[in-house]
């Protein structure tokens, strides 16, 4: 039987983040983290047992992370197709995932491998995107993205999540499974290096 993974509701803003989640009141933070962990465990468990609606929920929650990981590595035009491949692989391999709470990091590794395979298959060189048909005003954006892609792996991925997908540091940590401290370091060092390069510093 073929099943489709549902998308977000039309008209909703996927970049919107609840202020309550970002700024919980004192004493509520631990409860929220515990609730989210329980919810993730439940969703992964159900998806592992074959529940495609639970997998749809995972897809909605983690799509932006996968998109960012791929965008930081492969041409923009290939990202959507590859993202579908990543989630298909995740669906097939999900029964092998032992710790449901490790889903984000596990999915991230699938995306990284998928992008590496794709680049190997397609024999890409450094030039990832053709910018021959740029809309007015896009040139600066393409240039900035190209510079982000030239950053070390850990920085570029975190910066794409922050600036392309619009996620905050805590959200990035939650999705990728990285510690908040790692995310903070990646953000600060990545921004610092990017600023240096944009000012014509060391390449």
């Amino acid at each position: 039987m073929e099943r489709f993974v549902a998308t977000s509701k039309s008209g909703s803003n996927p970049r919107a983040t609840s202020p309550d989640l970002l700024h919980p009141k004192n004493g509520e933070k631990e409860n929220i983290i515990a609730d989210e962990a329980g919810e993730l465990r439940q969703m992964v468990g159900a998806a592992r047992a074959g529940d495609d609606s639970a997998f749809s929920a995972l897809y909605r929650r983690f799509f932006r992370m996968v998109h960012a990981i791929l965008l930081s590595r492969v041409p923009n035009g290939d990202v959507d197709d590859l993202a579908q491949e990543v989630f298909l692989q995740a669906w097939r391999r999900l029964p092998a995932l032992r710790d449901p709470l490790a889903f984000g990091g596990w999915l991230r590794r699938i995306a990284v491998h998928q992008s590496a395979d794709h680049l190997r298959r397609e024999h890409y060189t450094e030039q990832l995107d053709s910018n021959s048909a740029l809309a007015p005003g896009d040139e600066e954006a393409w240039f900035l993205l190209a510079e982000v892609r030239r950053l070390p792996e850990a920085y570029r991925e975190t910066l794409v999540l922050r600036f392309v997908e619009g996620l905050t540091g805590p959200e990035i940590a939650k999705l990728t499974g990285l510690t908040p401290d790692s995310v903070r370091v990646n953000l600060h060092r990545g921004v610092k290096l990017l600023r240096t390069r944009l000012k014509g510093g060391a390449r």
């Binding site: 489709f4 998308t7 799509f63 954006a141």
Partner: peptide, 25 residues
């Protein structure tokens, strides 16, 4: 940077992949 790079973000989460039937455990 946020303003420039946001254009590379999908406006909506696209339709997900067609999931093949998976053998039960």
């Amino acid at each position: 940077w946020e303003e420039l790079l946001a254009r590379f973000s999908p406006r909506e989460t696209p339709i997900g992949p067609t999931l093949p039937a998976r053998e039960s455990r």
